[in-house]
Simulated scan of single mutants.
Amino acid sequence: MFHAGRTMFKMPPVVSHILVLVLFSAFCAALTDTCGQTDNLPDPSKQCCGIDLSDDHRETSGDAALNQFPWLALIEHSAGRITCTGVLISSRHVLTAAQCLYHAPKNVRLGEFNKTNSGPDCLHINGKKKCTGGALTIPIGSVIAHPEFARPNFHGHDIAIIKLAERVPYNEFIRPICLPSSDITALPPDGLRLINAGWGSGPKSTHEDDVVKHYVELPYVPLKRCQEIYRSKLNQLASKIGDTHICAGGEKDLDSCRGDGGGPLMSEQNGRYSLEGIVSFGPVPCGREGVPSVYTRVYSYLPWIQSVTTS
C-alpha cells in the first residue's frame, strides 16, 4: 500500500510481485558491489552486516527461516563431525569459542539449514517453494585463540578467531553479522531480550529437533545478578564470571545448550543484528529455571578482534 496525502493506492498483485523481485535484485547487486569479499570487518553503519532477508515471520523461539541468521557457521572436525558453532564476521573470519579448538577443526560450513542434508534445503512458505543453494564448506587456514585463554579452565577469555583458507562470497544465505558498536550492558533497555541461534540440542529436544537451524529468545541478566545466582546455586563457577562476560536466560527449558558452544548471543534493533556474546558455559543440564547461561562478551574483545583480523 502506498500513501499520497489521504489517497490510498493498492498496487496490482503482478506489479507488486515484480517490484519485490526488482528490489531484491537491486539489494543483492548492491550487496555484491559494496560488500564484496574482504578481510575487513564490515562497518555497522552500512548495509553489509547484521541483516537477514527473512520474511517468514515466526514465533520468538523455534525453527529459523531458511535465510535467517545467515552468519551462522558449523565447525567441522575430522570425518565431518560437528561439535561447535561459529559466527561469520567478515568474508575471511569466523568468531567462535576458544574451547572449540580442542579437537583441531578442519572446515567451516556456511549457508546451512539442515545439517544432515548434503544438497539444497527447501521449505514451502506461503504456498511457495523456497530453496537454498546448498551449504558451502571452506577449509580452515589458521586458528587463533585469545592469548589469555587457558585449558582446562575455559571460563575466561573463551574466544577465538578462525581464518578461512579463502574468502567466502556473500549472498542471501551467507553474510556477516555486525560487531557491537556500543556496550549494550552499560544502559540496557528495560525488558531486554537477546537471541541465541544454532543447531545445538535444546533441553527437551530430540535428534530430529537438532538437525535444522533454530533459535531462542532469552532475557538479559545483569552481571551482578548473574554472579549472585551462580554463587547461590553453582558456587564452584561463581568466581569465573567477570566483566568480560554477559549473561542471558534462566527461563525453564529455554537456553543455549550442548552443540551451541561458540555460537552467537545477538541483539536486534530495527532489523539489524549485533553480536553481543559467544556461548561459553552454563548450568548442566541446560534450561534450568532461574539460572542463566554465561557468554563471552564480544564488546570487551573488540581491540583484540581488530588486531587479529588486520594482521
Rank of each mutant, 00 (worst) to 15 (best):
L194K: 12
A186D: 00
P189A: 06
P180A: 10
P176L: 06
P189R: 13
I140G: 03
K128R: 14
P176Y: 05
R167T: 05
G133W: 09
R167S: 12
G141D: 10
H155D: 01
I138T: 14
V143R: 06
S181V: 09
N171C: 01
I125G: 13
P147S: 07
D158F: 11
F173G: 00
T132K: 01
H155F: 13
P152F: 09
G156C: 08
I125Y: 07
G127L: 13
D158A: 15
G141R: 01
H157F: 11
E166Y: 08
S142Y: 06
R175I: 08
L179T: 00
P147H: 15
Y170P: 02
G127K: 10
I162Y: 02
I159N: 05
K128C: 04
A160C: 13
A145T: 10
F149D: 10
S181N: 11
K129M: 03
A150W: 07
A186T: 13
A150Y: 14
I138K: 03
K163G: 03
L187I: 14
C131H: 04
Y170A: 07
K130W: 07
A150T: 13
R151E: 11
I174M: 01
N196Q: 08
A145F: 08
Y170K: 01
G133K: 10
H155T: 11
N153Y: 09
L194T: 10
G134N: 04
I184R: 11
D190W: 06
R175L: 12
L136N: 11
T137L: 14
V168I: 12
H157M: 04
K130C: 01
D190A: 13
V168Y: 07
A165W: 05
P176G: 02
E166L: 05
G191Y: 08
P188R: 06
G133Y: 04
T132M: 04
I174G: 02
P152L: 06
I144V: 15
I174T: 05
H155K: 07
H146R: 15
L187C: 11
L164F: 06
L179G: 06
E172M: 10
